[in-house]
Design a protein around this nucleic acid. Structure first.
Lengths: 118, 118
DNA sequence: TTGCGTTATGTACATTCGCATATATTGATT
DNA sequence: AATCAATATATGCGAATGTACATAACGCAA
């Protein structure tokens, strides 16, 4: 299924977005790279932005989804907590479920769109 | 179901958003009021913004979703076309389907969030 | 002890987004 | 003919958003 047709799920916490497509991808990247800055580079965003997104996630949930450490071998790093992994897994599961539920209707929508000129 | 927990569906057309939550509500409002400016007032947005959103919708689909007329009794107006009504109905149906499909998981997510302080 | 890479945080600047405002056009009504 | 309300479109301004840059703290390794 094309990215274009995937439903966007947002977990709101007051005025903040606790989790959304971007934050989920970032969380994924932090888990894989073990570093906020590496994840930022991978996703093509500034370190500051990545850090702010992580900070928002950490503040919105019961407990931090990412734990970071300064200094040491490699300068430091970040790891996704148990809760973080659970949150991510649940989010991905929901994404899939929502996508499947509207898949056929989404495809039919394409017929109503204009002919693409790109 | 609270607004916060509703999946956001976006129909993309190249770089443009052909239809999303905001445009769907606007389309609804135009259908009810018979006017772009009345819909803009109702939704608390500028006429310009409403017009641009309508314009995007019209360009993205096979045929216009909204047809407008200038002058005349009342200065003019706008009506939602047959295609527009079909598009809106399909979109609402998908919204509902997606919402139902993740409803229980979304509720469980609430348990993972922090205690709200507002 | 010096160096390095990362976390953490502040500040300034660019870009985007939306609004307010202004103007022209239109066509039935008065 | 004059009026009126809405469409259609341009322009400038302010707010919000994100990047770039700067700086400090940190702790292991050379």
């Amino acid at each position: 299924m094309p990215e274009a047709l995937k439903p966007r799920l947002r977990i709101l916490f007051g005025t903040d977005i606790a989790l959304g497509p971007g934050k989920a991808d970032l969380l994924d990247s932090v888990a894989r790279t073990g570093s906020i800055s590496a994840a930022a580079r991978e996703m093509g965003m500034s370190y500051r932005r990545a850090w702010l997104l992580v900070d928002t996630m950490n503040r919105c949930f019961r407990a931090p989804l990412v734990e970071a450490s300064k200094g040491g071998a490699g300068g430091g790093g970040a790891r996704v907590t148990e809760l973080g992994l659970e949150v991510l897994a649940r989010y991905r599961a929901m994404e899939l479920k929502a996508a499947v539920s509207v898949a056929t209707e989404m495809r039919e929508f394409t017929r109503l769109l204009a002919a693409k000129q790109e």
